[in-house]
Design a protein around this nucleic acid. Sequence first.
DNA 1: CCCGATGAATGTACTATACAACCAATAGAG
DNA 2: CTCTATTGGTTGTATAGTACATTCATCGGG
Lengths: 174, 174
Amino acid sequence: MTTQHPHETQQPHNTPRPHGTEQPHDTQPPRSTDAGRSTAVDTIERELTAFARRARATAARLHPDLPLVSYTLLAHIHDQQGCRATDLATHYMLDKSTVSRQLTTLEKLGLVERRPDPADQRVQVLHPTAAGAATLTATHASRHAAYQERLADWSEDDLTRFASYLLRYNNSRT
Amino acid sequence: MTTQHPHETQQPHNTPRPHGTEQPHDTQPPRSTDAGRSTAVDTIERELTAFARRARATAARLHPDLPLVSYTLLAHIHDQQGCRATDLATHYMLDKSTVSRQLTTLEKLGLVERRPDPADQRVQVLHPTAAGAATLTATHASRHAAYQERLADWSEDDLTRFASYLLRYNNSRT
DNA sequence: CCCGATGAATGTACTATACAACCAATAGAG
DNA sequence: CTCTATTGGTTGTATAGTACATTCATCGGG
């Protein structure tokens, strides 16, 4: 590597700094702390997005067998026992058709069972099969281990605070 | 809605609680705070993943014109002026071929310019065009506004702490 | 001067996704 | 009780994003 470009490793862009919208503007900012807030929000936006973009690859490394999508759906079915396809679609902002197909796959793999709801013939109540629960446990263990390792040098307080920030953020969805 | 399933809205699964791997095990835990850490890590894992799974849909709502992938690549090219395709692939954990095709698209749209590096004929130095910068500014403004709104009731301290947690997390990538 | 390494493009295949059309069942309005 | 709008789900179709393998050109060191 002879030529020097501003490479990843040379300039990790960790430093929160203004993006494109930061030009000084003559209209008075509504609050005095706007600049600080804006910078922090920019960082949050950038880092969350970066994480999201890497999630697929990370999952593929962690558990090549069970794709990320299948995993998340299966996990949600496990957590929300008896949920319906529509619930999954809502939770993950997916189209019904997408969920339907994913469930078909999961069912073919024998990981999920679609039980008819006797009280409403339209509805399918979803449950993980024994195999599904086992797969989920294994996959989750693998993921959990990776997260544990990556967060190994965080204090418990920091972990708790980070977790509650994420919850707060995700639950503020409109 | 007559039958009552454990729906999204009825049981938002916000409460951090053990997942499948929490069975009591007879080997002594290395630290006494393991349980607390484990719970927090589980929450972090779950919430980050949920966010990642929704990112595409959110982006589509925010800026239907410029897909999330294009946006992130363009943003990185803008931030790391003069970066190369390989840098993008590394940063986002993508295959070179994927980046190559994305860049082709961005170039066809007139948003990115691939300049040959005089010092190394293999290398393409990437720069946003004027149009690219403009698009980026607009898209970023739209995203930024959405994030601002969603984080409107957070204190600046919380924003700053959340941002630094995210930075710390993302930079701990091995 | 050759040879392994590096940056990038192309061939190919597959997965995830959305949108639209459709079907079946339910719930209300009259 | 019947008609109609709504809801849950599937299927048809199209597209984007991605990976893996191959290929090509260039660079750098023996």
